[in-house]
Design a protein around this nucleic acid. Sequence first.
DNA 1: CGTATTCCATTTACATGGAATACGGTGCAGTAAT
Length: 497
Amino acid sequence: MELESLLKKHFNYHSFKHGQKEVITSILSGSHTMAMLPTGTGKSLCYQLPAYLLEGQVLIVSPLLSLMQDQVEQLIIRGEKRVVALNSFLDKNERTQIFSRLDQYKFIFISPEMLSIDFVVHKLKQLNIALFVVDEAHCISQWGYDFRPDYMKLGTVREKLGNPLTLALTATATKEVVSDIIQSLNLEMWNEFIYSVDRPNISIRVESLESVVDKQKKLIELVSTLQGPGIIYFSSRRLAEEMVELLRGSGVQKVMAYHGGLDQESRILIQQQFLNGQLDFICATSAFGMGINKENVRFVIHYHMPLQLESYLQEIGRAGRDGKESIAILLYIAGDEQLPYQLAESELPNVKQIELCFKWILNCPDNLSNIADFEAELRILARLTDIQWRMIRDYLQSLNANELNLTKYMNEFKLFVEQRLNIKRDKINEITRWTNSIQCRREKILNYFDEQKKMDIRNCCDICGMDMQSFYKKENEAHSIDFQFHWKDYLQAMLTK
DNA sequence: CGTATTCCATTTACATGGAATACGGTGCAGTAAT
């Protein structure tokens, strides 16, 4: 077969993994393609192989700078030199240079934010874009509404680029997420490849506890007895840091915290140390995980519950990529769902803030023509975060300045925010119900993703019954090999690239 | 909502309890460029 020989030639693999060939064939037939492949199936091959059969450039929209840099590196290591990442890492000179010879690249990685700049789109338009790829496409649905609104503009961008052939890739997607992706990309006809989200080798367990002290004790007990390596997820940076100290105090040494508050260097370092086995445990926020491919993670513990089952599934999916038996444990105290509710609420502007803003604008003589002029003042006055301000600003900018009925618009905006909040609350309700349920954990998750549980699984979940012995450290376990890893050299290499 | 921190009054103690307040996640990004 032609595809297999290409696979051998460019990637040195002998056979495709589950789903890859179908997705690639679909693209090569010229159909827009929505592919949901389980974590660790080698999603990037789905656009990299077709790239060699298509005339023109492959444009890949990627959510994280680190992910882009990583993919670029991988391609370069494989001998593909025609690769570039368009992002804020480029300095002025590099940028000028690269934009002047964009057509010489085969693979162009880009952030959705960059794609919202007119100049960039103008430049891309002059290319022959053979394939428009949205990597981690669930970000559209998960982030696009508020956190990273440029994700919602990808459809418009696609149109400006002349509706190129499109591939959306993700590992987690409910029917709603899939339809969000299709809609916001403005796809009319497309092929869908949806595979099971189930990961039979991950046992699922909820530990109900009475108090914070119990929870901390339980965490220490688990981390010191379970077979590592493992990831512990928190919804608070401070707590992640504190638990590292607590674990160290209890004799767990090879543990570090990872969250968005750390500088880029520390994040790279800690991630690498975990990948190399110099760290056994990571206390992390949701900042940790996307694009991390560590095969032998044996457990994922949640100290706090995520804001939706989609996130939960993504996070526990980082365990057991090697197919070996692994465990996911959620530590739960009744009422824990209050933190997610609070996080969801504080992300959006509240009624008071909205009223304050509109009132202020109403009293402003030249109100909507130059929003940027009063940004600073208004933001301080209403104590708006970046995200809150952006939502308000984008809404104001969408208004027709000729017929200003601010009261009407304000109520419309309030309603819009209320609806977003209700969607977020529903998701939290869903995961809370799941936590408190007495039905098979796996079955309920699968049902949420519109699947049925098809087989009996050993050590399925705490409801079906499981033997915790399988997950404890083995006696006389050989200590993980310490690689001679010179982190200073590594960092130097990363930073001078 | 729940937890941790700060503030303040007490009846004069350098400490303590209770009230008020702050905090809680995810990331990209030209100051022109066609």
